[in-house]
C-alpha cells in the first residue's frame, strides 16, 4: 500500500501538491487523472523517490520511498534510456539491478511487441521507444508499477499494443499499477480505482465502477464535469 499523508510539494512559486492525503490500495490498477499541471507526474515522482515532499510524508509499504526502489518499476513520460544502447544492452543493464527481472517474460514480450534486440534506441521511432520502455518495465515482476503518461504522443495502434500488454501481464491482487494520464478514454476499461487531481488537490476519488454507476457517467464525462464545475 502507498500512503500520502498531508503531502505538499512546490517548485518555486508553483504549487504541485497541496496538503494531499491519499491511499493507493495494493493489488489494483489505479488511474491518476487530471489536466496538465494537476500534480500527476509529481505524485508519481514522489512515490519513486525522485522528488521529496516539502511537508507531510509518503510511505510505500510503511517505508520511505528511497528504500523501496527495488520494489517499484517506473516508466517515465520522457525518454530516459541511453540512446547508444540497443534493446539487448538496455535489458542487460536493467536486469543487473533488479532481482525481480523475469527473463522468460522479457523474451515473450519482445516478440509480442514486435521489437528486435539489436534495435538501437537512438534509431527507433517514438512508438518503438515507448514499447521498449514498457518492455523493460513490465519484464520485471515488481509489486508496484508506476506509469507516467504511457500513451502520450503515441499512435493509436501502439496505444492498443501497450494496453493489451498491460492487460495480458497484470497480476491481479498481487501487483499495483498506477497510471497517470489525461487520455482517460484509453484506460477507462483498465482501472479499478480512480483519483482525479486538479491544481495539486484531490478533486474526486473512489472505485471506478461505483463512480460510474452512482453518477451514470463514463470516467471521461465524470472528469469533464468535475473540472467544468471547478472553473
Amino acid at each position: 500500500m502507498i500512503e500520502f499523508k498531508n503531502v505538499s510539494k512546490s517548485f518555486g512559486s508553483t504549487v504541485a501538491l497541496d496538503d494531499v492525503s491519499l491511499v493507493f490500495p495494493r493489488g489494483k490498477i489505479i488511474g491518476l487523472f487530471g489536466p496538465n499541471g494537476a500534480g500527476k507526474s509529481t505524485s508519481i515522482k514522489l512515490i519513486m523517490g525522485l522528488n521529496r515532499p516539502d511537508r507531510g510524508e509518503i510511505r510505500v509499504d510503511g517505508e520511505n520511498p528511497q528504500k523501496k526502489k527495488q520494489d517499484v518499476a517506473y516508466l517515465p513520460e520522457i525518454d530516459h534510456l541511453y540512446p547508444w544502447m540497443n534493446i539487448a544492452q538496455a535489458a542487460d543493464f536493467t536486469r543487473t539491478f533488479y532481482a525481480d527481472w523475469d527473463e522468460a517474460k522479457y523474451q515473450e514480450l519482445i516478440k509480442f511487441l514486435n521489437l528486435q534486440e539489436d534495435m538501437k534506441i537512438s534509431k527507433i521511432s517514438k512508438g518503438q521507444r515507448a514499447k521498449t520502455k514498457l518492455l523493460l518495465t513490465v519484464s520485471r515482476r515488481a509489486p508496484y508499477l508506476l506509469m507516467d503518461e504511457p500513451l502520450s504522443g503515441i499512435d493509436i495502434l501502439t496505444r492498443e499494443e501497450i494496453i493489451n500488454t498491460l492487460i495480458r501481464d497484470y497480476r491481479e491482487g498481487e501487483q499495483t499499477i498506477i497510471i497517470s494520464t489525461h487520455e482517460i478514454a484509453e484506460v477507462e476499461s483498465l482501472v479499478d480505482e480512480v483519483i482525479f487531481l486538479d491544481r495539486g488537490q484531490v478533486k474526486l476519488s473512489g472505485n471506478a465502477e461505483d463512480l460510474r454507476v452512482e453518477r451514470n457517467m463514463s470516467l471521461v464525462e465524470l472528469m469533464k464535469e468535475a473540472f467544468r464545475n471547478a472553473d
Partner: peptide, 13 residues
C-alpha cells in the same frame, strides 16, 4: 541533458 538521470535516480543504488 539526455534525461537519463531519471533512469539513474530510479535505480536501487
Amino acid at each position: 541533458n539526455s534525461n537519463t538521470i531519471y533512469l539513474l535516480l530510479s535505480l536501487p543504488v
